[in-house]
Design a protein around this nucleic acid. Sequence first.
DNA 1: GCCAACGTTGGC
DNA 2: GCCAACGTTGGC
Length: 180
Amino acid sequence: MPTKKAPQSMPYEQGKWAAVYTRAVGERRYWLIKSEPDVFSFDDLSAAPKQTTCWDSIRNTGARNFLRDAMKVGDLAFYYHSNAEPSAIVGIAEVVREGYPDPTALDPTHPYFDPASDPATPTWFVVDVRAVSKLEKPVSLADIKARADLADMALIKVSRLSVVPVTEREWNIVLAMSRS
DNA sequence: GCCAACGTTGGC
DNA sequence: GCCAACGTTGGC
């Protein structure tokens, strides 16, 4: 029996991220997803079956909303190593399956089981991501912070959000940095 | 290891 | 509904 109330759905369409929930026909959006390399690194993703994994165990409502509602098949994401030396963007992944209920939240034997998440109206969501390519050169958090034209990146502006949007402009700047 | 940011919980 | 306590993330 659920003992706690599940976190409520944010009225995201009215929130500060409203723009990332809309897109032109055929438009591709960009994201940044964080993982600690000791837990699941980009190389781990590359070594996984079909280079694909379920991006599970996210337990933050803001990140959940992106996973559930905003990320679409074909979108690309920078793969960021947090709590790393150095913390850096190291690769590119592609969304290959759109939001569906996080199986870890519904599995009583899983450490991330959430008894408050009702299977009929799940609280937590995942997408599937596939490794696309490793960056020629990692782009570190320090590299990003050193650039005035990346000062507005959500990675910097919004702390402790494990899935954040990236603008197309930011995406291209970081890509260029990874090749220089 | 420290601690800032900030989301969540729960007493009132 | 307010807000203090608490827990987590993640840089440094």
